[in-house]
């Protein structure tokens, strides 16, 4: 999957930490949230496998921008949170 800057995306609404040992780099507060791709940062080995010393595929990593007040239901209009997210956690919104 290739995502372009400006594209609307949604973070998958998944909770692997409730299902057993795992290592994930997608913060809890972003699950299911909609954001906008800022840019592709490159391709990096999947940390979810590296953490268990398993063979790790290279995945695209994106900088994704989220509306900050929308996440918390409070805050200052226009403020944003920008987070590095792997392609496997994103779907077109």
């Amino acid at each position: 999957m290739s995502l372009a800057p400006g594209q609307a995306v949604r973070v998958k609404l998944e909770w692997p930490e409730t299902k057993g040992p795992c290592h994930i780099r997608t913060p809890h507060y972003l699950r299911g949230r909609q954001g906008v791709v800022e840019r592709r940062l490159g391709s990096f080995a999947n940390p979810e496998d590296l953490a268990f010393a398993r063979p790790a595929a290279a995945l695209d990593l994106y900088h994704v921008r989220f509306d900050q007040p929308a996440i918390w239901g409070e805050g200052h209009a226009g403020d944003a949170i920008v987070v590095e997210l792997f392609e496997t956690w994103l779907e077109p919104a």
Binding site: R25, T26, P27, L41, G42, F44, P47, L61, R65, Q68, H76, G78, D79, A80, I81, V82, V83, E84, L85, F86
Partner: peptide, 15 residues
């Protein structure tokens, strides 16, 4: 200031 936009960058991965 109110008229300054804030961007919080949560460093989650390889950068």
């Amino acid at each position: 200031p109110e008229n300054v936009q804030l961007r919080v960058v949560d460093s989650t991965a390889d950068y």
